[in-house]
Amino acid sequence: MFLKPIAAKLLAKKVSKSVDAWSKRPVETQEKVFKDLISSAVSTHFGKDHDFKGIKSHEDFIERVHVRDYEGLRPYVDMIINGDKDILWPGKPLYFAKTSGTTSGVKYIPITELSIQAQVEASRNAILLYINETGNTKFVNGKMIFLQGSPELSEKNGINVGRLSGISAHYVPKYLQKNRLPSWETNCIEDWETKVNAIIEETLDENMTVIAGIPSWVQMYFEKLKEKTSKQVGDIFKNFNLFIYGGVNYEPYRAKFEKLIGRKVDSIELYPASEGFFAFQDKQNERGMLLLLNSGIFYEFIKADDFFTENPKRIALKNVEIGVNYVMIISTNAGLWAYNLGDTVEFTSTSPY
Rank of each mutant, 00 (worst) to 15 (best):
S104W: 11
F347L: 03
K56G: 14
D205I: 03
F298S: 03
E202I: 07
A198C: 09
H50S: 03
M220N: 13
L204W: 12
I199S: 07
V42S: 09
G149R: 05
Q284S: 12
T350I: 15
K303Q: 05
S274E: 15
K53S: 11
Q117Y: 13
G246Y: 08
A97P: 07
Q219T: 14
M1R: 12
V218A: 13
L88H: 05
N285A: 12
L292E: 09
A8K: 11
E269T: 04
L225W: 02
N311D: 04
L260D: 04
A304W: 04
E258Q: 12
E275S: 13
K4E: 10
F277S: 05
S18T: 10
V161E: 10
E63W: 06
V324C: 03
P352T: 05
E28D: 06
L242M: 12
S230G: 04
F257E: 02
G162Q: 04
K56N: 15
I261K: 08
L176W: 13
I236N: 14
L291C: 02
H50R: 15
V140P: 00
V106S: 07
T203R: 05
I211A: 08
L270M: 13
K228Q: 12
D49A: 09
L114M: 12
I214L: 11
G158C: 09
T44Q: 02
D235K: 14
V65A: 14
A316V: 10
E185K: 15
A8M: 14
A273F: 11
K264N: 05
F237V: 06
T186E: 09
N136C: 01
F222N: 11
V172C: 00
G105P: 09
G166N: 02
I116D: 00
A97G: 14
N136P: 02
K238T: 13
I322Y: 06
L73F: 02
D36Y: 00
E193S: 10
W22Q: 01
C188I: 02
V19Q: 00
K226Y: 09
Y171S: 04
Q219G: 10
A316L: 07
